[in-house]
Structure formats: structure tokens, C-alpha cells
């Protein structure tokens, strides 16, 4: 299946190289009156990079300092408790993981399907541009609105209650616009020449999609999806709205099960006045950050791995 792709340059050569290219153009150009400006701009850019990094570092170190005494196996494997020293995060961790898995299962096929239709099959018309406009708008809607929608539609009208399924459906709504948009961008990144080559070989649209286009843009799609999921794992507002803030000390065992998630557990702990619960909240934040880092790292690794595989 990779035969038609061989010899093509891997996509995205520009993004990682852009930093270097400005430096090399600097070397090529003779020093002119613009050089101080150039240097100043360089410094400003560096500062702009440094500030958020520094803010993150301060945040992370202070949270880690608070969390340190609580982090351990007991915390990861324990259930929530009225005694802060005994409280653990396992139900929330498993809840978050199952919620993400289920959300991905719903949002990814639908999102990629919609993207393929819009990008490859739909005729340009007023209707499709209206749909496109709506999708980009939906991506900017505050997440609590999706929570209210989920409460009305999934929890009440469909009688799903405060279940894992209701939570996953709500988060899927939140993710869909993002998944559709990143998938469409990924589809668009496949050069026209490749498509023409496919048509030239007599491939129909489905064959071209299946054998060439999707394999080529899949790493990109996947990265977008995992980044969207990593954002969704930190969502609290929509889940609060559908009423998932409860004491849940067991692991979800079906899609109809009640659940807790990491951000909800952190919220519950931070709203307690006792400072020892704030340590638990800090430890919960560290766990959440670790999960997000793992997901983002996994996205990078997966993308690198899949991209390496393509030309071979």
C-alpha cells in the first residue's frame, strides 16, 4: 500500500525547519541598518517564549512542592475519603481514562467521516460553506454550553442519567468541531499532484482515499485528535453541568455507570476548606499533568513512528 507514496517528500517539512531558516537567511544577508532591529526582534521573540515557559515552571514547581508528600502508590490506588491522608484518586483516574476512551470512540469516527465528506465528496455550495462556517464557530463555543446541551439532551431527554455515556457524548460534541477541522487540514495537506497521480492510474475516489490519502495524512490527523483529547481530559465545566460532581468511590464498570474524573476530583478537593485537602488537590493536578504529558508525548511518538513508516 505504500508503493504509490514512495519517493514523495514527507509532508510538513516547513514547520520544524522554520526556526533555522530565519537564522540562515540572517547569515546570507550582509549586516545592514536593519541588524539592530533584527536583534531586538530576536530578543523579543525569545522573551515571548521564555515568559510562558517560566510561568508554567513556577506553577509546576509550586504545585509539585504542595503535592510531594501525598504522591505515592497509596494516592494513585486509593479511593476518595473524608480523611485527607487516606484519600486516593483511582476512581477519578480510571473515570477519566474510560471517559476519554469512550469519547474518542464516538468522536473520532464521526469526526473523520464528516471531514472526509466535506473535503473529498461534498460539492462546493452555499449549504456546505454554511456548514463549514458553523463548524468553525462551534469550535469556539464555551464548553459550558455543551454541558447545558448535554444535560438537556443526553441526561434528561435520553434518560442516560449522570452516566459515563452521557459524559462521553457531551465531550464528543465538544470535540467534534476540533476533530473535523484538524482532520480536514490533514486531508488538505496531501499535495494535489498525488491525487492527480492516483486518478492517472485509474483509481476511483474510495480507492485513492483508502490506499493513498488517508495513510498519508493519518499521522497528522492523529496528532490533532490526541491533542484535542488531551484538552478534553481537563474539561470540568460540562461535566459539572451534567451533574457528575458526586462522591464516587468505585470504578466505572459499564457505560451506564456513575463516574468521577480527575478535574472533578481536584475541584471537589480544592473547594474543601481544610488545607490537607489542598495537598490532595495539588497531587491530583500533578497526576492530571502527567496524564496530559503522556498523551501529548504519545501523539508525538506515534506521529514520528507513522511518518517514518510511510516512505519505506
Amino acid at each position: 500500500m505504500s508503493a504509490p507514496v514512495s519517493g514523495l517528500p514527507p509532508d510538513l517539512p516547513s514547520a520544524p525547519a522554520s526556526g533555522r531558516s530565519s537564522a540562515s537567511s540572517d547569515d546570507l544577508r550582509a549586516p545592514t541598518a536593519g541588524a539592530p532591529v533584527e536583534q531586538a526582534f530576536h530578543a523579543i521573540g525569545f522573551l515571548a517564549l521564555l515568559l510562558p515557559l517560566l510561568a508554567f515552571l513556577v506553577l509546576f514547581v509550586s504545585v509539585l512542592a504542595d503535592a510531594w508528600p501525598r504522591l505515592g502508590w497509596g494516592f494513585l490506588s486509593g479511593i476518595p475519603s473524608r480523611k485527607p491522608q487516606l484519600a486516593g484518586i483511582l476512581p477519578a483516574l480510571v473515570g477519566s481514562a474510560s471517559l476519554m476512551g469512550l469519547t474518542a470512540l464516538i468522536a473520532v469516527p464521526v469526526g473523520i467521516g464528516a471531514a472526509i465528506y466535506l473535503e473529498e465528496y461534498a460539492r462546493r455550495s452555499r449549504l456546505t460553506s454554511l456548514i463549514e462556517l458553523n463548524i468553525s464557530n462551534l469550535a469556539g463555543v464555551p464548553s459550558i454550553i455543551y454541558g447545558l446541551l448535554g444535560l438537556e439532551v443526553f441526561v434528561r431527554a435520553m434518560h442516560l442519567g449522570r452516566s459515563l455515556l452521557a459524559g462521553a457524548l457531551t465531550l464528543s460534541l465538544l470535540l467534534l468541531p476540533m476533530v473535523i477541522m484538524t482532520s480536514r487540514e490533514a486531508l488538505r495537506s496531501v499535495p494535489l499532484s498525488v491525487r492527480e497521480a492516483c486518478h492517472g492510474l485509474g483509481a476511483d475516489r474510495f480507492c485513492m482515499l483508502r490506499l493513498v490519502i488517508l495513510p498519508m495524512c493519518f499521522p497528522r490527523m492523529l496528532t490533532g485528535i490526541i491533542l484535542a483529547l488531551a484538552r478534553a481530559i481537563g474539561e470540568t465545566a460540562p461535566l459539572l453541568t451534567i451533574g457528575a460532581l458526586t462522591y464516587v468511590a468505585f470504578l466505572p464498570d459499564s457505560v451506564h455507570s456513575a463516574f468521577s474524573t480527575l478535574p472533578l476530583q481536584i475541584f471537589a478537593w480544592i473547594s474543601r476548606p481544610q488545607t490537607s485537602f489542598h495537598e490532595n488537590a495539588a497531587a491530583g493536578i500533578v497526576v492530571l499533568l502527567a496524564v496530559m504529558l503522556l498523551m501529548n508525548g504519545f501523539a508525538l511518538w506515534l506521529r514520528a513512528r507513522l511518518q517514518r513508516r510511510l516512505p519505506g
Binding site: M1, V94, A97, S98, M100, G101, L102, A104, L105, L164, R210, L211, L214, P215, F218, P219, L222, P252, D253, S254, V255, F298, L302, L306, R309
Partner: peptide
């Protein structure tokens, strides 16, 4: 059709899904 990437995703999803479903 996209066997290798799809297989990977399936592996990733399988654990959580088996649990959830």
C-alpha cells in the same frame, strides 16, 4: 484499509474500551 495505523489506534483504544463497554 489503513491497516498499520488503524491497528495501532485499535491497540490503544482496546484497553479502555474493553473496560468501558
Amino acid at each position: 484499509g489503513l491497516t498499520p495505523p488503524a491497528a495501532l489506534v485499535a491497540q490503544v483504544a482496546a484497553g479502555t474500551l474493553a473496560c468501558a463497554l
